[in-house]
Simulated assay, not measured.
Amino acid sequence: MNTPDQSATPHGAVVIICNCPDAAVADRLAAGLVEARLVACVNRLAPVRSTYRWEGRIETAEEVPLLAKTTLAAYAAVEEWLSTHHPYTLPEIIALPVAAGLPAYLAWLGNEVNP
């Protein structure tokens, strides 16, 4: 587990990207993260085509991306939860810092997350 730099975002908000193999898995993971209060909100995006190298071969697959809004303080718990509940052997779990945002939204986000 890689702990993000706490100074990366002064308000503590991050967006976690995680691709899923289908809509059912995306729905299950999104609901589980919100129910566990690890994230404030998850957007399930339209399916995308992903191309990547896996076990020496170039693969192409349709995936459903998730954008989960949470805090740096909760990142480690989100990573652990997703690693446990995601069906992929090696799921994409990456956090991007939020450079700025509506202060009221960022306050709501922080109040909804309990790592």
Rank of each mutant, 00 (worst) to 15 (best):
N2S: 12
N2R: 12
N2E: 14
P4N: 02
D5R: 14
S7P: 13
S7R: 10
A8I: 04
P10C: 08
A13F: 04
A13S: 11
V14C: 11
V15Y: 06
V15Q: 07
I16W: 02
I17N: 07
I17V: 11
I17W: 14
C18E: 00
N19C: 07
N19S: 14
C20E: 01
C20M: 11
P21C: 11
P21Y: 11
A23W: 02
A23R: 07
A23M: 01
A26V: 00
A26L: 00
A26G: 03
D27F: 02
R28L: 02
R28I: 02
L29K: 03
L29E: 03
L29P: 00
L29I: 02
A30K: 02
A30G: 05
A31G: 15
A31D: 15
A31M: 15
A31K: 15
A31E: 13
G32W: 00
G32Y: 07
L33D: 12
L33T: 04
L33S: 04
L33N: 04
V34N: 08
V34G: 07
E35F: 04
E35Q: 08
E35W: 05
A36R: 04
L38P: 05
V39C: 05
C41E: 03
C41R: 05
V42C: 04
R44A: 04
R44M: 06
L45T: 11
L45F: 09
V48F: 04
V48Q: 07
R49Y: 14
S50N: 05
S50L: 10
T51Y: 12
T51I: 15
T51S: 12
R53T: 10
R53W: 08
W54E: 02
W54K: 14
W54T: 07
W54F: 11
E55A: 11
E55Q: 15
G56H: 08
R57A: 12
I58N: 06
E59C: 07
T60D: 12
T60E: 15
T60P: 09
A61C: 10
A61K: 03
E62K: 06
E63V: 03
V64T: 11
V64Q: 02
P65Y: 03
L66R: 09
L66T: 00
L67K: 06
L67N: 01
A68C: 04
K69A: 01
K69P: 08
K69Q: 05
K69G: 03
T70F: 05
T71L: 14
T71F: 15
A73C: 05
A74W: 08
A74C: 15
A74D: 09
A76K: 15
A77H: 07
A77I: 06
V78R: 07
V78D: 06
E79K: 14
E80I: 10
W81T: 02
W81M: 05
W81Y: 13
W81H: 01
W81L: 01
T84C: 13
T84W: 11
Y88M: 01
Y88H: 07
L90N: 13
L90W: 05
E92G: 10
I94N: 03
I94G: 01
A95P: 13
A95C: 14
P97A: 09
P97S: 12
V98T: 12
A99F: 11
A100R: 12
G101V: 13
G101K: 04
G101I: 06
L102H: 10
L106N: 09
L109K: 02
L109F: 01
